[in-house]
Amino acid sequence: MEKKNPDLDIEKIIQDYRPIINFRVKKAIGQHTPEWEDVVNEIIVNVIEKLQNNEFRGDSSIGTFIYTITSRRIVDYIRKKSKVLKHIPQPNPFPDPYEQVETREKAELMENAIKELKPKYKKVLYLYYYKGLSRKEVAQKMNITPSQVSERVNYAQKLVQKKIKK
């Protein structure tokens, strides 16, 4: 395909944005919906076509441009689905761990890293993510402030990332 806009490195753009589009689509329509990959591919093809046709004029950022295409396609998909199905597909609360963590091995590393955390960090993760309590509820249970809950979660994540990168 001929590249009409010499300033745009379409390959690089797609490489950068594919994970973001993947994430957004899976979050919106659910990663267990078999068509999610098709929807992503359609979006990418659409983005490439528009870029090649010089439809991106730089009025907005490339991120906003791709976000708009992605959002429209997701809305179309849900509309079509809702005509066939009685219920709109429910999105997953968050994409699958093993897909995102990439490998079972990484998930195991993270599991061990969390196990080794100090109790005060582990308890926050347990109450906030595993039990699904609100920040305020976690704060009450642990006699800390809601902002301290966020601080502990952030710090716990840093420690986990540090351990798995060793």
Partner: peptide, 19 residues
């Protein structure tokens, strides 16, 4: 967000063993 999603996912899926 991607990193946080990994953390939440592992906690949700493997919480029984972790905690």
């Amino acid at each position: 967000m991607r990193e946080r999603n990994e953390l939440i996912s592992v906690v949700k899926k493997r919480g029984d063993a972790i905690f």
